[in-house]
Design a protein around this nucleic acid. Structure first.
Lengths: 133, 133
DNA sequence: CTGCGCAATGTAATATCATTACATCCGTTT
DNA sequence: AAACGGATGTAATGATATTACATTGCGCAG
């Protein structure tokens, strides 16, 4: 059984809610600042909560931004591979899944005897809205 | 015409050579330490050289490591998308290109009106050699 | 030649992201 | 109550990256 939202601790809940309410990715220190009023004082409080939430699949880390987002599909935990399209203008992140990409990367791994633990796919660019503007 | 190796400045050449001689990715500060003997004193000297080398396609940045590697195929500049398999045990990085992955991510971008500038594909895991050991 | 512009460089300081170390609290088990 | 483990609190430090400003070297117009 994977963990459910019910089992989250207070700190984990606060961090997850902060990310869920945000309109884009947040850095750990931004989360910290937004939770000062709730008693957060140190980065570690945020990083510890994020570590658990990442494990639960409720939060994703954007490697190319050193930032975090709430999972857009928190109820279907079965994603094998998640890709992100990140707009450099507005900061919006679009989360999607592509089975073909997953298969191709899996095939490469098989052919090369590589055991994948975590795969990062991030597209940086400009979203439709910002291109229109 | 894209820039050739000939046109590199002294600092760029030193940084590129350091990466080329390394047996895995290096952080900017590790590069700095290795170039102290050549007169490097500050991070910016490394970051400025890396910025140019990234632009020339001679160096890649590994987002999930905050580190840099010399391009494994510095003579064919036409890669549309490059993927990396990173071994968490030995640190070796395998650089490869997958046309199908490129097409699929390109298709997603087209369908969503997204203009991709840079795509990151990194697989973290364990290489064949380390699995055997 | 001189001075101007521009790219590269040098240096210091600071900003941003992340971890280590150690103490404390709290609920569960015994 | 004592022992234990998970979560938390706090401080300090380490690691990565950028900003700001001064200086140098070089091509070239005047």
């Amino acid at each position: 059984m994977s963990a459910t939202h019910q089992e989250l601790t207070r700190n984990q809940t606060l961090v997850l809610d902060t990310l869920a309410k945000a309109d884009g990715p947040l850095s750990a220190y931004t989360i910290l600042d937004r939770l000062r009023a709730d008693g957060f004082r140190a980065p570690l409080q945020v990083y510890r909560a994020l570590e658990k939430l990442l494990g639960f699949g409720l939060v994703h880390r954007l490697e190319s931004l050193n930032a975090f987002v709430a999972c857009a599909h928190p109820h279907c935990h079965a994603h094998g591979l998640i890709a992100f399209a990140i707009c450099e203008d507005c900061g919006q992140v679009d989360e999607f899944s592509d089975e073909v990409v997953r298969e191709r990367l899996g095939a490469w791994s098989s052919q090369n005897g590589f055991k994948a633990e975590k795969t990062t796919v991030e597209i940086r660019g400009h979203c439709a809205s910002c291109l229109a503007a």
